[in-house]
Design a protein around this nucleic acid. Structure first.
Lengths: 267, 267
DNA sequence: AATATTTTGTTGGATTACCCTCGTTTTGGC
DNA sequence: GCCAAAACGAGGGTAATCCAACAAAATATT
């Protein structure tokens, strides 16, 4: 056996040392299993079970059946929440939007469930880009990967997990980016809209600071005009969605020469 | 047939789509369980087992008992070793520090595991105060409660879940607060220190902008001088810890007239 | 439309992990 | 050395997972 730490009279490692090594191991590998650890430390599976349970109680590891893995940094929506509403559609929209991003580009991404999906898709693709965002989940998702993330200042809104306010707007004015990717709570022939004024202001500013101005929106939100306008049709260059718009909305989009990208069911 | 999408006639996802989603999920979480996936996709565990085995064969995932985890290659930075134990101690320190905060005060709180505990304690007490922080977990913890939270801008550091950089420092200079609460990776007779320079700079700036300047530090870190100095003894007004300092450290603290608050074991 | 192929579900038995309790060993203090 | 507390291991019953072979269903092909 290797000499890798202090041991008891019986030649075994003591509890604290064992647990320290478990944490160390999880830095290198994403997962350890009880059976393997038990063999390595030469202690009974029951002891390891107690170790893992203790560490899991302190949130230092994520317990799994037969082992444990490193804790997820930053909490993502649980599996149950996903069933709720149109997650599949949003993920598809996010995927085609992410596909349009080039290596090395600078982007602004705002807050919302659709843009979080976009962040996941970008992280999945591993695109090395620089992102300015006011959304904490977006920052945390992209921050684990190769992207460079700059977070905006502002008043924290717990409902959205994002910051807004004058500090946010002022901060955004210091930058100019290749493209912005924003969500919205509605799109009609008058443009895109948002229910909360503070968020609308952030979207407006992001649209001003970007060369390519893209909106990601669920087809369920077609022909909906919310309280605050976040941008006119003329302010947009691309619309990512999951179904082809019709009627007056389509006419308005074409009149403003907005590129329409529809996510096919296949992704 | 028109619809060659990811869903079958029965409304279930296809194999490729399911496997794609499993990979995506593992980008965000370190581990997935067969039982959970089976429920989510509404397919039998055997099907998921086949999926995971196939993905493991291609080295895209690491198989484990009852589930799978992300392959060790692209695994992201470490969890903090300081977290190894002493959760209780940090919680106690955080509790007495939180007790010193008055209703209506303005504070600056920096990043680190101890200050996250402080945020939890403040949220638990329900103190209505205004907080400026560069830590995302601190913002999210306090944001759910009655506190008013202002987040700093800056480059996101996924290892700490916080932002740093020139934008952060510049932003802090616009404010002046009643008190700051900061952590540190060491305290010696020369003052408090930090291992990462970027975080030390944030702490220094917070100390400059506050009337009452408090440090929360575990007694395990006494007499440790890290790489970068975050503040001299003279910059501090209060030290919250879990054991009474001794020797030259105590002498230096008394010479600088730093108030020493020790958290009793009872909490 | 009929057939071939792929994908998925099912069944049953072996394996592994879980959880609880209890006795033993080790540790740390006096 | 002695005692109390903590840590550890052993046993047994239960639950979850695994594996392999086969049956059913969905999909693709001709």
């Amino acid at each position: 056996m290797l000499d890798n730490g202090p041991r008891t009279a019986g030649g075994k490692l003591r509890k604290s040392e064992r647990r320290r090594q478990i944490l160390l191991e999880l830095k290198l590998r994403p997962h350890v299993r009880i059976s393997a650890l038990s063999e390595r430390f030469n202690v009974s599976p029951e002891t390891l079970r107690r170790d893992l349970d203790a560490l899991a109680k302190d949130r230092l590891i994520d317990r799994a059946h037969g082992g444990a893995s490193a804790p997820s940094q930053g909490h993502y929506p649980s599996l149950d929440e996903r069933k709720s509403a149109r997650v599949e559609e949003r993920a598809r929209i996010a995927r085609i939007a992410a596909a349009s991003v080039q290596e090395g580009e600078t982007l602004m991404i705002d807050s919302g469930s659709t843009t979080i999906e976009l962040a996941k898709a970008l992280a999945f693709r591993g695109v090395a880009c620089t992102v300015i965002t006011n959304s904490l989940p977006v920052a945390m998702t992209l921050g684990h990967g190769v992207a460079n993330v700059m977070l905006c200042p502002g008043e924290y809104q717990s409902a959205e997990g994002a910051v807004i306010g004058t500090e946010t707007l002022e901060f955004l004015r210091n930058f100019r980016v290749d493209r912005c990717m924003i969500g919205a709570s509605g799109v009609s022939e008058e443009g895109i809209s948002e229910t909360v004024r503070g968020f609308a202001a952030v979207k407006r500013e992001m649209l001003r600071r970007a060369r390519v101005r893209a909106v990601l929106i669920d087809s369920e939100k077609f022909a909906i005009a919310g309280l605050a306008r976040a941008g006119a049709m003329q302010d947009l260059s691309t619309l990512f969605t999951d179904a082809r718009p019709k009627g007056t909305l389509l006419a308005a989009l074409e009149a403003a020469q907005v590129e329409i990208c529809v996510a096919g069911p296949a992704g």
